[in-house]
Amino acid sequence: MDGPYEDLERRLAEYVGRPAARVWSPWPLEASSIRQFCGAVEDANPMYWDEALAAASRFGRLIAPPHALMSLAIDAWWLPADQQAELDRVKAESDEAKARAVLAEFGMRTVTVVEREEEYFAPFGPGDGRIGRERRVTAISPVKRTKVGTGVFFTYEIDYFTERADTLVARARNVTLIYEGGAA
């Protein structure tokens, strides 16, 4: 798109490609948080609920639904100020945060997920420690007019690691729309 957005697109280009520092989930993988996730969709799979059956299964232990990964790795909804400040500091250094700050200058602050794609390499569950994630922006589209507002399609990938064995357990690709939503 021409006009005021030419400068935006030029400024965003430099933030594509580089991985950010690894960020850890606030808490280790635990059966309780796995089961809260399952409860939201009424998932009774015994691999998440029945320790004996899970131990006798091919997984050999309780596991998490692999597709619960994003939820289990999500940031805490509240932290003591010093811990939140440290997390914010690390995140602010990422190219993704810098790109988001540029978009915010142009009023594009509302985020909606358009497509989420995940690939799971290995089961994970209670006992694996925290989940680490490494994010990188992989594409930012030119500015587009959409039915919810003017914005960009913003794509990023995340590699997920479990803490105890330092294993790459999954990779995700997110296509989001970041747009002028009207409410900051």
Partner: peptide
């Protein structure tokens, strides 16, 4: 998105059996 991932995972595992394991999931 995470809720849909959960529901779809549940749906597929209920068909595939509790030892089935989702390897890839793409949601639009």
């Amino acid at each position: 998105t995470m809720w849909y991932q959960g529901l779809i995972g549940r749906y597929v595992n209920e068909w595939g059996g509790y030892e089935s394991f989702v390897r890839k999931l793409s949601v639009q």
